[in-house]
C-alpha cells in the first residue's frame, strides 16, 4: 500500500509538470486557431511554420545568441578561472562575490540595470545589446562550473609536463584542459540553456524589431499565440527528449562499467 502511495505521489507530480506541455502539443495539431477549442487534427501549422519569416528570425536570433553568448562567456570564464586561482584569498573572495551578483540578483533588476547602462552609453538596443546582456548573466554559471574542477586539479601534472619539456601553452592544452573539460562543457551547456530560456533580461535589453522566441511569444500573448509557435515548441521538445534519452543511456552504460553505482548526479550535471 505504502509503495503504491509513493508511486501515485510521483506520478501525480509528473502529471502536474507535464499537463501544460501536453496541452501545448495537442494545440499544435489543432485546426482551430483559438486556444482550448478542438476542431480537428491538422499538420498545417508544422508546414506553415517554416515559411513564417518572423518566427524563423526569432528562432535564428535565439539560437545564435545562445551559441555566441555561451561560447564567449566560456572563453572569458576559462581565462578568469585560471587567474582567480592565482589570486590572494582576499582578492579571490571579492572577485567571486562580484561573480555571484548576476546569479543572486533578481532578473528584473539585472535587466533594468543593463537597460540604464545601455541608455547612458548610447548603445543601440538590438542584437548586440541582447548578446552583451546574455554573456553577462552566463559568465557566473560557467565560472561556478569550472572553478571546483580547477581547485581539485593537481598542479604537479602541469609541472611534470613542463619538466618534460612541454611549453606552457602545450602543457595547458594537453594536460590541464582535458581535466577541466567536464566542467567547461557543463558550464557551457548551462549557459546555453539559460540564454535560450531567458525572457526577463532580454525584455529590457532588446530593441524594436529584434525578437527572440521568448519576447515574440510575450508580444503574442495578448493578441493570441500563433499555432505555429506550438508546433515549433513541440518539435523542440521532441528533439530535446530524444537527445536527453540518448545522453542518459550512454551515460548509464559507461557508468555501469565503472561500477560506481550512483549515476543520478551525472544527470544533474546538465541541469539548467
Amino acid at each position: 500500500m505504502s509503495r503504491f502511495l509513493k508511486k501515485l505521489y510521483v506520478v501525480l507530480i509528473v502529471i502536474f509538470m507535464y499537463a501544460p506541455i501536453a496541452v501545448m502539443i495537442v494545440q499544435s495539431f489543432n485546426q482551430s486557431k483559438s486556444r482550448g477549442h478542438w476542431t480537428g487534427f491538422t499538420l498545417e501549422w508544422y508546414i506553415s511554420l517554416f515559411s513564417d519569416e518572423s518566427i524563423m528570425a526569432a528562432l535564428r536570433n535565439t539560437l545564435t545568441i545562445a551559441l555566441l553568448s555561451s561560447l564567449i562567456a566560456t572563453a572569458i570564464s576559462l581565462l578568469a578561472c585560471l587567474a582567480i586561482r592565482q589570486m590572494t584569498k582576499n582578492t579571490r573572495t571579492v572577485v567571486m562575490g562580484i561573480t555571484n551578483i548576476p546569479m543572486l540578483n533578481a532578473d528584473i533588476v539585472t535587466g533594468i540595470s543593463m537597460m540604464l547602462l545601455f541608455l547612458s552609453m548610447g548603445i543601440k538596443f538590438g542584437y548586440g545589446s541582447i548578446l552583451i546582456a546574455h554573456i553577462t548573466f552566463n559568465i557566473p554559471y560557467v565560472i561556478l562550473n569550472i572553478m571546483p574542477r580547477l581547485n581539485s586539479l593537481d598542479n604537479s601534472c602541469f609541472e611534470a609536463a613542463r619538466d618534460l619539456g612541454a611549453s606552457p601553452v602545450y602543457a595547458f592544452f594537453h594536460v590541464v584542459l582535458p581535466d577541466l573539460m567536464p566542467g567547461v562543457m557543463s558550464g557551457m551547456l548551462m549557459a546555453f540553456t539559460m540564454s535560450i530560456d531567458d525572457f526577463i533580461i532580454t525584455h529590457f535589453t532588446k530593441g524594436a524589431g529584434v525578437d527572440t522566441l521568448s519576447t515574440k511569444i510575450y508580444t503574442e500573448v495578448r493578441k493570441g499565440i500563433k499555432p505555429e509557435m506550438y508546433a515549433l515548441s513541440t518539435l523542440i521538445f521532441g528533439a530535446i527528449l530524444i537527445l536527453l534519452l540518448l545522453l542518459n543511456f550512454t551515460k548509464n552504460g559507461s557508468r555501469k562499467k565503472n561500477k560506481t553505482g550512483t549515476n543520478a548526479p551525472s544527470i544533474l550535471e546538465i541541469a539548467p
Binding site: 501545448m24 522566441l213 509557435m229 536527453l244 549515476n263 544533474l268
Partner: peptide, 24 residues
C-alpha cells in the same frame, strides 16, 4: 535519475508558452 530527468526536461521548454498553457 529518470524521474529527475523528467523534472529537468520541462525547463528546456519556453517558460512563457508553458505558462500560457496553464491559462488554457
Amino acid at each position: 535519475g529518470v524521474v529527475i530527468l523528467l523534472f529537468i526536461l520541462p525547463m528546456w521548454m519556453n517558460t512563457l508558452l508553458r505558462t500560457m498553457a496553464w491559462q488554457t
